[in-house]
Amino acid sequence: MAITKQKEIAKDNYFFVRSCIRQTFFPGAEQALINILKSNLKLNILEDVNHTSCTGIGFHTDIVPLETTMAVIARQFSLMNQSGCSNLLVSCVTSFGLYHEIIDLWHHHPELEAKTREVLWTATRREFTIPTSIAHTSDLLYLYRNELALQSLYQLVSIKTGKPLKVVDHIGCHYAKIFPKQGLGGSEFPVVLSGLITSMGGESIDYPERRHCCGFGFRHYVLKESRGYSMTNTKIKLESMAPYNPDLIIANCPGCAMFLDRWQYTLSEIEGKTYDKQGLGIPVLTHEELAALMLGINPWDIGLQMHQVPVESLLNKIGISYSPVNKYKLTDSKPTTIPKKASILQ
């Protein structure tokens, strides 16, 4: 259903909580985001070294019980309270959905909230109040998309043709499907990424399987025997994107971004083909990586060398200069090693 009222996003004063998957696969992206929020946008972003995972993956693989997850989340809120902030900034999309699920549960079943307070006190001597607002990091970049565009050195435009690049987006399921009102634009046509893409000069392309899950499936990926589920669902998406010849895929969920990138490799090894015409694969960026790139941060400082689908084709289209020699350079003292070559994706 269409939402009638867009959710409000707090402009400043956030307590930041990190993502297990994002920091593992896109460590530079989280760092780049913090730099952008603090230096470029002059926002007050606080963090506590003592925050943990929200247990989202454990919860959705059904090994961590509801009561445990509720208490861990309550503890995160307690840390937020200690920092003096009442706005929560969430890096992971599963977490984002989960925080809202728990708060909604407490709203409908106040006895659960009461029990959680009791448990948290007994376990940690902590108390908590629920955040005034919860935003995903992509919400915040959407809010400031015009300011970021003004500060950007580059645009999602082909320097050769002058035309906007064709960009497809993928929104993590838990961003808007659980509570459509918590997603900018609702569950069917969220605008959180297409808005950012457009302000950066790109053309946001609709494709049939846009709302289809990337296939993470939680337990399906964790267990070797069912990883095919994950790959199959990403393949459905890639096949759907292919006829539109996109130059770029943007995803706001770290798991989705990782899968859209990695399964292109795996599928190319199995099928001997890629989903773009040039055989290079379709580069995938997270929203932070996109913003950082447009603002002129060195691609290898953002961490784009960690992607399996090479991003150089995109960098060339935009006219971003980069040093091929420094791509895999780690420290000045160590000789650079490079990853083995894939069969198809070069």
Partner: peptide
Amino acid sequence: SEVALNSDETLR
């Protein structure tokens, strides 16, 4: 459950 547009302008 869902309707989308194919690249040939038919509905999926």
